[in-house]
Design a protein around this nucleic acid. Sequence first.
DNA 1: CCCGGATGTTAGCGAGCGTTAACGTGATGA
DNA 2: TCATCACGTTAACGCTCGCTAACATCCGGG
Lengths: 206, 206
Amino acid sequence: MNPTKTVENRREQILREAARLFAERGFHGVGVDEIGAAVGISGPGLYRHFAGKDAMLAELLVGISGRLLSAGRMRVAETADPAQALDALIRGHIDFAIDDRPLITLHDRELDRLRDSDRKLVRQLQRQYVEEWVGVVRRVYPDATELEARAAVHAVFGLLNSTPHLGAGGRAPDRTAMAALLHRLALGALEALDPGRPWTAVRTDG
Amino acid sequence: MNPTKTVENRREQILREAARLFAERGFHGVGVDEIGAAVGISGPGLYRHFAGKDAMLAELLVGISGRLLSAGRMRVAETADPAQALDALIRGHIDFAIDDRPLITLHDRELDRLRDSDRKLVRQLQRQYVEEWVGVVRRVYPDATELEARAAVHAVFGLLNSTPHLGAGGRAPDRTAMAALLHRLALGALEALDPGRPWTAVRTDG
DNA sequence: CCCGGATGTTAGCGAGCGTTAACGTGATGA
DNA sequence: TCATCACGTTAACGCTCGCTAACATCCGGG
């Protein structure tokens, strides 16, 4: 009935395969012929759906950045106190990290391949997302400085985004176990921002 | 006196600039002319020092992997108990992450661009390094399973390797403060592997 | 019946890239 | 003095890649 329906499906299919390939071999390492082959059409056929290879990457990065931000904001708005908000942010980010692995990889790896305008947009979305986290973190740990909170947030992103590094073979825990573990690790890391917290490991001077 | 001296310096200079450029724009995103220009000679002049562009990347990745592993082993061997060993591993990794930022970036980003033999070698070095960590972590936290420990180690790598994401402007703490913060964050994350540890954040059901 | 749009195809262009070839040059040492 | 070697240059080759042009096929609606 809706003629655009099949088009949209095709576009989404192309984007999914392109994301996977870009994450595996890098933006410059993948040719349009490969992307086409991955969806059963051949190279130039892609240009019926996208203006070019750059446009695919741009749509992917703008999409993931926007979804991360809006999902984060929504989850925070539904919580009652900062600790719950932090919990919700972590949970939401883990969902993205596990379910959209290729996009998470691209998100902090291929940003520089974008046109100036797209890059500015993505960076703005990313910055707002970081600010969302920093605000919550500083409310939970008021003794942390702005710089510390920001660095800690980036560090936790690195922690949560580490899933792609465990080749999904039997060497990784299943989804729920992995999500729970990452959640505990992230909370544990951020607790280091609490100065009143007792030392549990040796301090070999420093 | 030593005629190879200037050659070695040239090689090292080339490798340093190549690492920086590869980290900034990706292996495929950098041309040999750019690498040459960065050291004051022009494109093909590089072939007096390296067999090709691939050889530069291979030498960079094998080098960093080997140095990470040998430094880690040495530091562990110098400690008396597992907790100190873990402390030493974290400290050593932080030194690499902060001082060799471009190499750390390349290390987990451009591995697939290597020839099979080089890639196998780098992967083997990486695996041995991970095993070093996993062994120490499991001695400090005996209740963690093998899978948990391995995932946690990769997560901590992601955490420690997050430094490149804070564009070295005034938005990041200075070196010593950053090193201390990363150290605390990593220890805090790993403490989550201790099941007897009290909950400190809300648990909004699961 | 056939027009037109959506969606493909193949052929080929033009640019950029890694690499090689051929050549220059200055320091070194017999 | 001059052969040699280290180190660099420019020109050019061949290949790949993104993209366009031109043409084919299917299909719904007047």
